[in-house]
């Protein structure tokens, strides 16, 4: 099976202007990220604030132009694509955002929000657009009568259903969901996750699912990509990653995630992610890593294959052999 989405050494750097005379700084939000995702699968992207998850999402949707590297959608490279190609491909990659209170235009009726992608991307007439929008609204669990209402008349969970409906209006193949359930209550979160999984099965959707919630990721993902300060530190199939986390950061994340009925970790991982602007040498995680040695502070670890896992750590063999604290009991 060939990959639907191929990401090749993707980097995104933002210049930061600090004043007229001060030298410009570069914020390296995303550094040399590569992965392949096959059609119909769900890749979860995991990491804390500043890890580059949302920057990655924006590059995948071609909302921004990457500084280096490329994204290939079904073999078509996007960095060198002309405007006509991009316009043709845009409907195939759609996004669902975290905050359903901010991502829906408060001045537009739900029907207008859902019909807009069709007006832009198809030649459908008004009645055709209307019937497609109503059908989609019913598919995500709302009623056709609600189409004439405004976003403020809906709860958070209902708004996220509307946002999902809007993303699906252009019949995308890839959906990028950036923390789609983080703003929702537990009971509503389960409804929306079920909807996403049902829609994936029905429409053979490919998901890039960005989340900081490992319990949700463990439920929904086929494979998991762990990011830290713009770098991929580990990638593996879901079961492999949760059973045998290789990178010390992945181990720390798993250990820190609260689990029902288990005591809080007595010695949680220390420190916080440093600023992306801080000068970096060697491994980005070295400053917090309990296993760091001199080599970690000098040499950037390359992402490499280790028994089915891709991991960026010089000492992954040794660490994963000794560490058990990060592994949830199964």
């Amino acid at each position: 099976m060939s990959a639907l989405l191929e990401v090749d050494a993707l980097s995104k750097h933002y210049p930061l202007r600090r004043g007229v005379l001060a030298p410009a700084l570069t914020l390296r939000a995303l550094d040399q990220v590569s992965f392949r995702l096959e059609a119909g699968r769900t890749l979860a992207v995991v990491g804390e604030s500043g890890s580059g998850k949302s920057t990655l999402a924006r590059q995948l949707c071609f909302l921004e132009t990457p500084t280096e590297g490329d994204v290939r959608l079904d073999g078509t490279p996007l960095a060198s694509a002309d405007r006509a190609t991009l316009k043709r491909l845009r409907p195939q990659v759609q996004m669902v955002f975290q905050n359903p209170y901010a991502s829906l235009n408060p001045r537009k009726r739900i029907s207008a929000l859902l019909e807009e992608p069709l007006a832009i991307n198809t030649t459908l007439g008004a009645s055709g657009r209307r019937s497609r929008a109503l059908a989609m609204l019913e598919r995500v669990g709302l009623s056709a009568e609600q189409a004439q209402r405004y976003p403020h008349m809906f709860s958070g969970g209902q708004r996220q259903r509307i946002a999902i409906a809007r993303a699906l209006m252009s019949s995308p193949r890839v959906v990028i969901a950036d923390e789609p359930v983080s703003a929702l209550d537990v009971s509503v979160q389960a409804q929306v996750l079920n909807l996403l999984m049902d829609l994936q099965a029905e429409r053979e959707l490919t998901y890039v699912f960005i989340s900081h919630n490992l319990a949700v990721v463990e439920h929904i993902a086929d494979e998991v990509l762990v990011m830290y300060l713009g770098h991929v530190v580990e990638q593996a199939e879901r079961a492999t990653l949760f059973a045998r986390p290789r990178h010390p950061y992945t181990q720390a994340l798993l250990a820190a995630t609260p689990r029902l009925g288990q005591p809080a970790p007595a010695n949680p991982a220390r420190g916080e992610a440093p600023s992306l602007l801080a000068a970096q040498q060697g491994c980005a995680y070295a400053g917090r890593c309990p296993h760091a040695e001199a080599r970690c502070r000098e040499e950037v670890p390359r992402l490499r294959e280790l028994e089915g896992t891709r991991v960026a750590c010089h000492f992954a063999e040794r660490i994963s052999a000794t560490a058990s604290s990060g592994t949830p009991a199964r």
Binding site: Q158, N194, M197, A215, E218, H219
Partner: peptide
């Protein structure tokens, strides 16, 4: 409704409706 109570199940046991 918690994902950790639905290991291996395709769907979560969601609570219908809203508060």
């Amino acid at each position: 409704a918690l994902p950790e109570h639905n290991r291996g199940a395709a769907r979560l046991q969601a609570l219908p409706g809203n508060v």
